[in-house]
Design a binder for these strands. Sequence first.
DNA 1: GTTAGCACTAACCTGTGGGTTAGTAATCCA
DNA 2: TGGATTACTAACCCACAGGTTAGTGCTAAC
Lengths: 115, 115
Amino acid sequence: METATCTDKCRTVMPAAEDALYIIAGKWKVRIIIALASGDKRFNELQRTLTGISARVLSNELKDLELNGLVSRKTLDNGTVLYVRNAYADSLRNVMHELVQWGIGHKEKIRNREI
Amino acid sequence: METATCTDKCRTVMPAAEDALYIIAGKWKVRIIIALASGDKRFNELQRTLTGISARVLSNELKDLELNGLVSRKTLDNGTVLYVRNAYADSLRNVMHELVQWGIGHKEKIRNREI
DNA sequence: GTTAGCACTAACCTGTGGGTTAGTAATCCA
DNA sequence: TGGATTACTAACCCACAGGTTAGTGCTAAC
């Protein structure tokens, strides 16, 4: 007889966490979402906000975020393009909040050599 | 004069989120933490639980998690090694919970072609 | 005495996330 | 008319996360 090394619950939970991480992870996704929280932005504006990102990478990341429904492209009458944070991105609020809180706490711990 | 493309708040928040993600991200970190939630496990036991991970990768991931204080190695008198989820890993509870909830909701959305 | 399990490490390989540099077509500004 | 800006794409490159296979020294079982 074999011991249950992974409970049913953990079998549900693991892929869900993975799915979420898959969409959020990477160097820029979260930054972009945060950047767009303070209002719609055009491409180059975003690039300036996210110091260090290249046009190529920004373009790719925006496409990913669009695919996942977090961000939309809005082309204005005069042709300028705005990147807009969708309402759906707000559903990440709690995730983000917890992530940020934990990140702050963790850095604090490291600063105090508690780790 | 330049417009403020990134608020002070967003400058605090971005790196914090990044820090947290850096520690959690990757294919296995979260899975390992979840796997260890149901009790201490030995190396090979973990490898069986996390179907698909190689010994090499598991070994590396465990070292990372140990470095960040989330997991400990406990060597018993008889020489067997147990990997133990630290109390500190519980501080990720909320993060995990939100991540999982969002992941479930997102998958639901995709299944319903809402994206 | 050999087979199986344990806890790994070594050597090697591959895919890809992400970076660099350059270029383009369109529009705006001086 | 010529430069600057916008919104990108193309071509190329590299580091590294993660996978594959093999092997180690130890112990316990058969």
